[in-house]
Design a protein around this nucleic acid. Structure first.
Lengths: 212, 212
DNA sequence: GAGGATCCATGCGTGGATCCTG
DNA sequence: CAGGATCCACGCATGGATCCTC
């Protein structure tokens, strides 16, 4: 948290410069660049491993791109939706729950009109879900999981879920993975991920007084 | 086979040249180059996939580096040794057996004193194991598999097996993978592969009159 | 001579996310 | 606006094998 607070107010160009890294011209071909820069700046030790970013303290770091009103302008990827194995037994044991149990949010300016190097980091927030947030997440997770168990995966759209949604997550739409159909047969489908809706992350920031 | 016979007598430099590929100075940093060149030259369609090289006809292609006497100077990699899952039920259903059921052998000159571009391809051989070969393979496979089932994986050395042996197969010796120990507990061990001894592949070539 | 160690290519999955139309 | 599509990095596994010391 000390290191995270030290980043607050700094702009991406300055941070990258101190680390000897070049800033890409835009994010369209480097969508994960900001997240990877800040993970490295904070000394995350599990980059690209299926582990919390900061292993010893069980903390996930996530950037939160904010628009001019301080509202997250994108959803937040949580984890892949497990489609093959028998489904996860409970919310508490789910991959999504574990990912979201302790998150270090790093707000980052994301107005398109601000050049990437000049975008600033906001006040960091080490967050765990409160009771209401946990209930909302769990309810969405259970409803979506029930559909998957019923073999209704193909009918799930991003419109479902109040705070947690399921959307495609792949290099492109031709990618397929194995899953289980309604009759228990093997089927090919699109890889999907769980995402937090912007309204949900916005509410988190508001609850902690970090944005209007 | 028509295409394979057309390669016989040609040297690697000519084949690479026709394909517009550069010949590396030596193989030490390009150990698989000859195999990949010839797969491409023959139109294999499953490069780097866990499938037979020629999917439609179920054929594996393998180069066989020969010394000045026409004896294979290296062992032949077959497949990875499955260490995690429950072991394979039978030789007939094993990965190794399926890999070896139809192999297109391409002998290649491998004397170090011949520059890589000048090394020639020999007569191709489309081979399936005869009864004796099958029995020898199966016996080794069953003995090695029994040791793995007994949790004696760490005691297996490359000295075991008359025709089929188990040796390390990894980027380097620090690589570890998950396996099952003697008491059924999860352990970390080195990834290993099945290999055919040179004496075995030598006998195949001799049986078909391709080498002295 | 051969057992143990190593090297490159490529597909796939996870982890980091944002892009881009209707 | 946001659902569906897409982009890069990297670890790991498989597939192609040969290297390099005892």
């Amino acid at each position: 948290m000390h290191r995270a607070h030290a980043l607050a107010g700094q702009c991406l160009g300055a941070i990258a410069g101190e680390m000897g890294l070049a800033v890409p011209h835009n994010l369209s071909r480097h969508k994960g660049w900001v997240g990877q820069l800040l993970e490295q700046a904070l000394g995350a030790d599990a980059e690209s491993l299926p582990e919390p970013d900061f292993r010893a303290i069980g903390v996930e770091m996530k950037t939160l791109p904010l628009d001019h009103n301080g509202k997250p302008c994108e959803s937040t990827y949580v984890c892949a939706v497990p489609l093959d194995a028998g489904l996860e037994p409970s919310w508490e044991e789910s991959w999504a729950c574990r990912k979201l149990s302790r998150v270090l949010w790093l707000p980052v300016e994301a107005q398109p009109e601000i050049p990437l190097p000049e975008r600033r980091i906001g006040t960091p927030l080490l967050w765990s879900p409160n009771d209401g947030e946990r209930e909302a997440l769990q309810q969405d997770w259970e409803e979506l999981g029930e559909m998957i168990r019923m073999g209704e995966l193909e009918f799930i759209t991003a419109r479902m879920g109040n705070v947690l949604q399921i959307r495609p997550k792949a290099a492109h739409s031709r990618v397929r993975c194995h899953s289980i159909g309604a009759d228990g047969e093997a089927i090919l489908t699109h890889p999907r991920g769980y995402y937090l809706r912007p309204a949900f992350t916005h509410a988190i920031l508001r609850r902690h007084g970090l944005v209007p």
